[in-house]
Design a protein around this nucleic acid. Sequence first.
DNA 1: TTGTAGGCGTTATCAT
DNA 2: ATGATAACGCCTACAA
Lengths: 342, 342
Amino acid sequence: MPPTMKDVAREAGVSTATVSYVLNDKPDSISEETRARVLSAVARLGYTRNITAQNLRQQRTRLIGFAWSEKPRDHPNAILDNFAYYLTRAAAEIGLRILTFTYPENDPIPVYADLVRTRRVDAFVVADTKPDDERIRFLIDSGFPFVAFGRSTPGWAYNWVDTDSRAGVAAAVDHLLALGHERIAMIAWPESSLSGNYRIEGYRLALERAGIAVNPRHLVRTVHSEQNGREAFAALWALPAHERPTAIVAVSDLLAIGVINGAREHGLRIGADLSVVGFDDEPMSQYVHPALTTLAQPLPAIADEVIALLDRVLIGVTDVTQHLVAPPLIVRASTGPAPVTA
Amino acid sequence: MPPTMKDVAREAGVSTATVSYVLNDKPDSISEETRARVLSAVARLGYTRNITAQNLRQQRTRLIGFAWSEKPRDHPNAILDNFAYYLTRAAAEIGLRILTFTYPENDPIPVYADLVRTRRVDAFVVADTKPDDERIRFLIDSGFPFVAFGRSTPGWAYNWVDTDSRAGVAAAVDHLLALGHERIAMIAWPESSLSGNYRIEGYRLALERAGIAVNPRHLVRTVHSEQNGREAFAALWALPAHERPTAIVAVSDLLAIGVINGAREHGLRIGADLSVVGFDDEPMSQYVHPALTTLAQPLPAIADEVIALLDRVLIGVTDVTQHLVAPPLIVRASTGPAPVTA
DNA sequence: TTGTAGGCGTTATCAT
DNA sequence: ATGATAACGCCTACAA
């Protein structure tokens, strides 16, 4: 129904090959006059190439697969959702589109494999990575192009871009040290979480740099939830007075808000009696009370980097690039000078 | 490189037509024996059909376009992002994939038109609709298939599913009435916002049903932002004592949180001195203090409905369906009994 | 500089 | 019940 190249060729009185050459800007081969005739025919007919035909011919789709895990969405987790937006926007800049899909948390491979076998996409952007990530292993093994947002097992050779959690948390701790805090605690995830561990590294690093020994009781590991943030706070607050932290860094805004909510129940003034830092900069974190100091995920930058790498990969470049982007520290009201020791 | 139908045909000793018949389950035409031979050849070669070729042949893509506006993402607006997830999941159930893209707020048509002309997608799901929405008009005019999440100009004949804001707000007001509140204020968006107006309708409806006259000073219109929520609260609180509201319903969680933050500065206890209701159930709203009573966007249900309609549209059904889904009221700590009049 | 023609991998029509 | 074969719309040797 819509015009095809054949229609344009007839209209312009040339062959379809000529039309194709004009449309693809084949270097010095078409006379100015012919080119003009073709272009005017294209305009007259309102012709646009059928991308499916182009794709079949060129053996590609210009589509990049991006997936969400099907885990329950009861926690705020704006990061991945936001990333999808930035990724979509960045991809468009180089003529790529994002095809979204979802996968079961415990069995991700079939849907990835299907997309590969049917040649539905040219490549993937893998996010929400974990150590020993099956998807990454599968893609490496099958030699299918992809770039990841996030690290997996250290040593695996694949292209990734990730938030520099270590540097981020170190900056947060430096900020607290500068405010005079000395008893700084950290609430992290279980040991199986790679990014949680990188964040702990940043914590240790900054303290060591300042010549402060890490108090093992100041490091609490717990599962991601607001309730667990409250409980972690309670545990820290139950320490003997001389060990009680004056500041707490959490690996996520959600845990930080749990801490704040727990501290409120104890009558503490956040930003004065206790300083709290989160991680992620969830959209609402600027509006909670008090506004949360946190490390912002640099999503637009990461999306741009991922797409840049993808572009190279699709061209056929094979050397591996791994890159960290530092999250900016957003200082708000939840951190303040260390309280004067009683 | 990967096996084609021709390879399978050779392997099974049949024609490509036969392979195609088997794969497409053509009714009673293939002998059991041939079918088995073909299937075993398919398995042996690990063959999967090339979807691009299939698409070219069948003149379709099995792709649905879904877009975000490129407006700045400084507010929490989890709704659209979340919807993208649920839509993706629902689409997969009927073999459709979502292709995402972004469009400039003030000039959306070119990117939609391009996707149409290149036959990149079979249909669109249009979200974030507004009155007199250009995109909807364009799609109606061009006869291109789509379903919308959200209403536009009343009277336009197209398929949509939307949150029943009117019923939602009415339920919120009923909840407040049952708690003994009589001076209930509403903070809404400017008149240009259709959904804001539907929410006001629900507000009026519930009050009228209860025989309470609407005090015009209890209806404040303002632009979506936390700061404006604070200011709207301040304006309401500046009313003479006998007109001061004991409860405020906001058109969004963001405005509601602004109200809460404003009220805190005035020393009010939310849920006691003042009850507050939001709308959307942003992911963080359950964790702010006090936890926010709000109306939850029924996104999974809407996504399912949208996909169901889309399925009909793609089959060629032309009658228009328009459907509202009621948002459940989530009662939390920000609403409580009306304060005893001093 | 331009045209001819083959092929990308399917599906569908028409024979047999 | 199965097989030839012609599209689907485009790109690209190769020829002219």
